[in-house]
Nucleic acid binder design. Structure first.
Lengths: 151, 151
DNA sequence: TTTGTATTTAGAATCATTCTAACTCTTGAC
DNA sequence: GTCAAGAGTTAGAATGATTCTAAATACAAA
């Protein structure tokens, strides 16, 4: 899980968009900035709220459009944890996600989906895979252990 | 991935339901029968259509209720592949799913989520995990290879 | 400039799912 | 057996996330 530069230069965004036949726009820049600032896997609605605080006229439809555009050009990934809203992640390395049932946070896990390939039946070709884990993160597990031994 | 008996006796269903404080009903029996008959991971709507052909008065709300009840008492699992409708699987062994982008079928894959545990950071406790794979199944991969070499 | 295309926007539409309230069926107490 | 209480079923309304639509706007190339 290598860390990426905190701020991706606009030039990079521009080039990536152009490579997919998409234009650089202030809204797309803003949405990407939101995702890079706090890498906490926000939902589209959370992205909307954060983006709106900087850019009050942005609309929900545009946030969805921008998230799509950024996903298309390979700067962002959609993450599906529960059955609820999709989340967005700017960490493009091959990794998995863990959602803590205690604090609700989604953690990046260094488990490459590439590692699953050997388990496939002969002849199957994987184009994409997703691993989602649920449980207690280290902090919450410690707290819950402490709580139950205290009573 | 051991195969289960094609028809689970009603007695078993009754016992499992009772163990969760639920009653045996004709609708729950019918919904389970649908899932056991064709183990093709149908959505709630597909279950509804199939159940309705045998039991014309059953409603969608009841199908959801029955699927919940069967999930609760451990006879059925929800499977989440795309962002769309949840699917239902009566294979309770620890396995994963592969959705073929060619034929749309969902295949059971003998990949225990238990196998992922060693990859977790120290202190994390997993209560549940799900692996979903996408690509081409052996049949579709073969067909697509044949098609592209023919042209 | 002009013109064509991409993008943004608000709101309507859609899809899967959950909720609600009325009705029905079971079960257990008498 | 009768009856009340609690489960379960039902249709339809409500919800939440997302996509679609149509009009307005902004760009980019000619």
């Amino acid at each position: 899980m290598k860390s990426e530069r905190a701020t991706l230069p606009d030039r990079e965004l521009n080039d990536r968009l152009a490579a997919s036949g998409l234009r650089f726009t202030a809204q797309r820049q803003q949405v990407l900035a939101v995702l890079l600032k706090r890498r906490d896997h926000p939902t589209a609605e959370e992205v909307f709220i954060r983006a709106k605080s900087q850019m009050p006229d942005i609309s929900m439809a545009t946030v969805y459009n921008c998230l799509d555009a950024l996903t298309q050009c390979g700067l962002v990934r959609q993450v599906h944890m529960d059955r609820g809203a999709a989340r967005y992640c700017p960490n493009m390395s091959d990794h998995s996600h863990f959602r803590c049932e205690g604090c609700g946070r989604v953690h990046d896990i260094d488990l490459a989906s590439e590692a699953l390939r050997p388990h496939l039946p002969r002849g199957f070709q994987v184009s994409h895979s997703e691993v989602s884990l649920h449980g207690l993160c280290a902090d919450c597990a410690r707290n819950s252990a402490a709580r139950s031994s205290a009573k």
